[in-house]
């Protein structure tokens, strides 16, 4: 296990290095005066020149890169060109917000998707099977921004069940901020005993989470169904049946365990997918997470933020894949 983890860590570092180089190089190679952007539209040439020296933009690109990496290792991610705030601070605030809805969405997609797929396989070729297949296909075919807008239209405008946007109601904002323990809003509110706050946040998070969960739900439901059906054709299932093992045990214990491996893989993929989808969902729901921030930074070519976000996304991607691989190893001892 240990050498495997070390290899993974090395791979992660390598990937991050390449990513940072690419993003850094890309944003520096593009037309657009960074210093001018930093100082603003109405700046005088001397101010721009001063900013250029300050930001170290007069040095060659590779020197800039090395200086950046040096600062990075000390935890200094630079200053945002757009907001003039330290990137690291913004990151610390916004990342947990997005992770919260992404993880919730992942949880829901498994909690609903896996049973759906299993039941569909157990009752194959019945109406349940067709229904699950239809739902799964539909979930995967819905463009996420369309779903988000649709949910807003139906659940806010027509039914009035959920709020339009944001993370907490404006009234709540006047309260004292929560003690930041985990920075996961729901958990912090629970720990502080402030259930009203927690309920309000959950109420706001509901529609964004549903939007994010749709695609993974469809993927998990369809994949677990087909994987399970394939597994049930295996020799060892027939052999166990011939030895007198009962149908339910055969399906839910013998079969299911073997079918989980591809489902776990797709969950790893879904993680990356959902992180990218937060760009759209947070925009539409005005949710102050990392996706919202990323989109604004992309359009303003705010390269310190861009590099930081790329690093974070890349790291999360590899970490979640590593966790998935560990889980797969635990489920299926054949994987080395």
């Amino acid at each position: 296990m240990l050498p495997f983890l070390i290899r993974r860590l090395a791979g992660l570092v390598f990937l991050l290095l390449i990513l940072t180089m690419l993003v850094f190089g890309l944003s520096r190679a593009l037309p657009g005066d960074v210093a001018a952007m930093y100082v603003g539209l109405k700046a005088k040439p001397e101010q721009i020149q001063k900013a250029r020296l300050e930001l170290g933009l007069d040095k060659p690109v590779h020197v800039q890169y090395l200086r950046y990496m040096g600062r990075l290792l000390k935890g200094d991610l630079g200053i945002s060109l757009r907001t003039h705030r330290p990137v690291a601070r913004d990151l610390k605030e916004k990342l947990p917000l997005s992770l919260e809805i992404v993880l919730l969405a992942l949880l829901i997609s498994i909690a609903l998707g896996l049973p759906m797929g299993v039941v569909a396989a157990f009752k194959r070729d019945t109406w349940i099977d067709s229904a699950v297949n239809m739902i799964g296909s539909a979930a995967v075919s819905l463009p996420i921004f369309f779903l988000a807008l649709l949910l807003q239209l139906v659940f806010f405008n027509w039914l009035g069940w959920f709020p339009l946007q944001g993370r907490i109601s404006t009234m709540m904002e006047f309260r004292d901020p929560l003690p930041a323990v985990t920075r996961f809003g729901l958990i912090d509110a629970l720990l502080a005993g402030d259930l009203e706050y927690m309920a309000d946040m959950a109420w706001h998070m509901f529609l964004p989470v549903v939007s994010l969960a749709s695609i993974p739900l469809g993927l998990v439901a369809r994949l677990s169904r087909s994987s399970l059906l394939e597994v049930m054709q295996a020799d060892y299932i027939m052999a166990a049946r011939a030895s007198g093992v009962g149908e339910t045990v055969l399906f839910f214990r013998y079969g299911l365990r073997n079918a989980l491996s591809p489902v776990l893989s797709i969950m790893g993929l879904s993680m990356a997918l959902m992180l990218l989808n937060t760009f759209y969902v947070e925009q539409i729901f005005n949710y102050p997470g990392i996706g919202y921030w990323a989109l604004a930074s992309i359009f303003s070519l705010d390269y310190p933020v861009l590099v930081a976000i790329t690093l974070v996304l890349g790291a999360i991607y590899v970490l979640s894949n590593t966790i998935i691989d560990v889980l797969r190893r635990w489920v299926d001892p054949r994987i080395k």
Binding site: S137, S141, P143, F145, F146, L149, L150, L153, N157
Partner: peptide, 30 residues
């Protein structure tokens, strides 16, 4: 869809039509 988003509540058909079109086409392919 983006053009229709600001008017989503009063004139939903502007954003819904293209979105639904995408959904139907992709669903058919799948």
């Amino acid at each position: 869809v983006w053009e229709g988003a600001p008017n989503l509540m009063q004139q939903p058909w502007i954003a819904i039509s293209p979105g639904a079109a995408m959904f139907i086409l992709v669903m058919a392919f799948n």
